[in-house]
Computed example of a mutant assay.
Amino acid sequence: MTELFAILTQLTGQSEEIWRQGFAIFLRLGALAALLPGFGEAAVPQRVKLGLALAFTLVVAPGVEVPALTLGGYGAEVVVGLALGLGLRLLVLALQTAGAMIANATSLSQILGGAGEPQPAIGHLLTMGGLALAMAADLHLRVAEFLILSYRLFPVGLLPDSGGMAEWGTAQVAQAFHLAFVLAAPFVAGSLIYNVAIGIINRAMPQLMVSMIGAPALGLGVLILLAILTPLVLTVWLSHLNGWLERPFG
């Protein structure tokens, strides 16, 4: 590792200390940037992700003091970056899970098809809408603030406590599923009421072809609900994302 820094110093004329600090910061930010909402999506080319990681490194480096690290210290930076990135990625998975719950509850799992990752179209719609809203709300600034804050939570070169991280990770998964159910709750409740009403009508009028009438009505009702509730659903999700970036450990 020292030989690499020496070669870079000869090629660029910059001090070895600058390269050593920049490399340590890049390891954490590179691991985290690969999982960031919006920046780390599968559709984003690897070169773009690398450029974003370098850009965030240039932004964060002036505010971080990096001591001399061993090989284990550099490895700890990668672990911290991956852990924080997975915490953020779970918020995107919450949107996708909410979309899957809505699609399954309303029998619209296959409508219009999906793009990118295999998921119902409603989940793709919510995910793309949430990411677009986050970008419009200056996600890059929130992420830069969060990256600088991460060095207060996890000093450079120190491996997090495994027990504490396991407990935190379990809580993040539980919170993601809770958020997904909250976002999908209006649609699930509406589907339950609809199916109960259809069951009562079918019992009262067995000769009526309930499915011929009910399926189009259900599809129309879900589309109307999506048009009305999607802005509210995405606003709630964005508030959770900003709250997580401000206080990732509660």
Rank of each mutant, 00 (worst) to 15 (best):
V48T: 14
T9F: 00
A176M: 10
K49A: 04
G243K: 05
S191T: 03
S109N: 12
G63D: 10
P206Y: 02
P118Y: 03
L126P: 02
L95R: 01
Y151K: 08
A55C: 10
L192E: 12
A94K: 06
L52V: 14
G199A: 15
V188P: 01
G22S: 09
I198C: 10
A76Y: 02
M165F: 11
I25V: 15
V236N: 09
G243Q: 05
G164V: 07
G30D: 04
L153Q: 13
A171T: 08
G169Y: 02
A105G: 05
E77T: 05
F146C: 04
I224F: 11
S211L: 12
G22D: 08
I25C: 05
G169R: 01
D138P: 05
W168G: 03
G123K: 00
I148C: 07
D161E: 15
F56T: 00
T106R: 03
N242F: 14
G38D: 01
A42V: 14
N195H: 12
G114H: 14
L71I: 13
T97N: 13
V44G: 00
L183V: 00
D138Q: 13
Q110K: 12
L147E: 04
A176H: 02
N202F: 06
L4T: 14
E77K: 07
V60Y: 04
V222K: 02
I228V: 15
A31W: 03
A174G: 12
A53E: 02
L226T: 07
A94G: 11
F181V: 00
G75L: 08
A42E: 14
P216T: 04
L183Q: 03
A121P: 05
T97Q: 13
V188H: 02
G214R: 06
R142P: 03
G87V: 05
V188Y: 00
A180T: 02
Q46H: 12
M128E: 11
P45L: 05
V48Y: 04
T70E: 08
Q46C: 06
L112H: 11
A166E: 15
M209F: 13
L238I: 00
